[in-house]
């Protein structure tokens, strides 16, 4: 009897909490979940992957997409791509930022400055991009998700699955077709300046395929190891980088979490023993 009450209560909590699952990707094909280094409770960012992802972002995405919440200094902070201070200073100096106190109103950026947006305003961006606004990347990886069919999303509360955004971004990168494929919904017509994508809600996306195999050249690692220069790999790398931009303290947050949960486990045990001892003489 008592057990069944607990089960019902637990169910109430789980169902209640989970009825607002991520639904950003509806109207697209089911998304393949990827095996991210930062997934799961032990996950951490792969520094090399973040550096590659930054390269893709900088060379490809950044010409249209901003990341106005990111400061150059973030790129050298622990838990992220962790470039050296000299690298970040040199990188920042390549960009100009507005500064009303400087001569001419602009000056070279310093690590404390935010990443400059490619357009002066959203309206400028729309005008330049044929009406479609390229979204800012700062928190985009957390503003997208995937929908799991009932009842599988319930498990997400126990696994802590938070990688729907990167899954979606990677899928979007590999989801382009040169022409409308036979899998398209019946009667589908692609508008002017639109491209067909399996995973974009409604399939008609205003962004041309940004990546092609070999379009970004990765430096070989110090040990001579290489990473495939494919759209699939670029997509994974840039999605990982975007997740880091959206959640830069993920690694330290999880580390603190382990300490907290271990502490609470120990403390709960002690509390229980104390409570039992205290109540030992009471009939209840």
């Amino acid at each position: 009897m008592f057990k069944s009450k607990f089960i019902i209560a637990a169910l109430a909590v789980v169902v209640g909490l989970s009825s607002v699952s991520a639904q950003a990707a509806e109207g697209g094909a089911p998304i393949q979940k990827q095996n991210w280094s930062f997934g799961g409770i032990f996950g951490t960012y792969d520094q090399n992957q973040l550096q590659r992802g930054f390269q893709v972002f900088r060379e490809v995405c950044a010409s249209c997409h901003g990341a106005h919440l990111i400061a150059f200094r973030n790129l050298m902070e622990p838990g992220g791509p962790q470039f050296s201070e000299a690298q970040v200073r040199a990188l920042a100096a390549e960009y100009e930022v507005a500064d009303p106190t400087a001569d001419g109103g602009v000056r070279p950026a310093v690590p404390a400055d935010r990443w400059p947006s490619p357009f002066a305003s959203d309206q400028d961006a729309r005008d330049a991009m044929g009406g479609a606004l390229p979204p800012d990347f700062s928190v985009l990886a957390k503003a997208r998700g995937v929908t799991d069919p009932f009842p599988w999303w319930v498990t997400n509360y126990f696994t802590g699955y938070q990688e729907g955004g990167p899954d979606y971004i990677h899928a979007l990168m590999i989801g382009y077709h040169e022409e409308v494929p036979p899998t398209a919904p019946e009667g589908f017509v692609l508008g002017d300046g639109q491209y067909y994508n399996d995973y974009f809600p409604g399939h008609a996306i205003g962004m041309a395929p940004p990546l092609s195999d070999g379009s970004v050249t990765y430096e070989p690692g110090e040990d001579g190891s290489t990473v495939p220069e494919t759209v699939d790999q670029y997509g994974k790398d840039v999605a990982a980088f975007m997740m880091w931009m959206a959640e830069p303290h993920l690694v330290s947050r999880k580390q603190t979490g382990f300490a907290v949960l271990l502490f609470l486990g120990l403390f709960a045990g002690l509390m229980y023993a104390t409570k039992r001892k205290l109540w030992a003489g009471i009939e209840h």
């Binding site: 502490f263 120990l266 403390f267 002690l270 509390m271 023993a273 104390t274 001892k277």
Partner: peptide
Amino acid sequence: TTTNRRDFLYVATGAVGAVG
């Protein structure tokens, strides 16, 4: 007979609680 163990338990719980 359980006084010592009980005291220790109370002190330990209190100390861990203070740290927390």
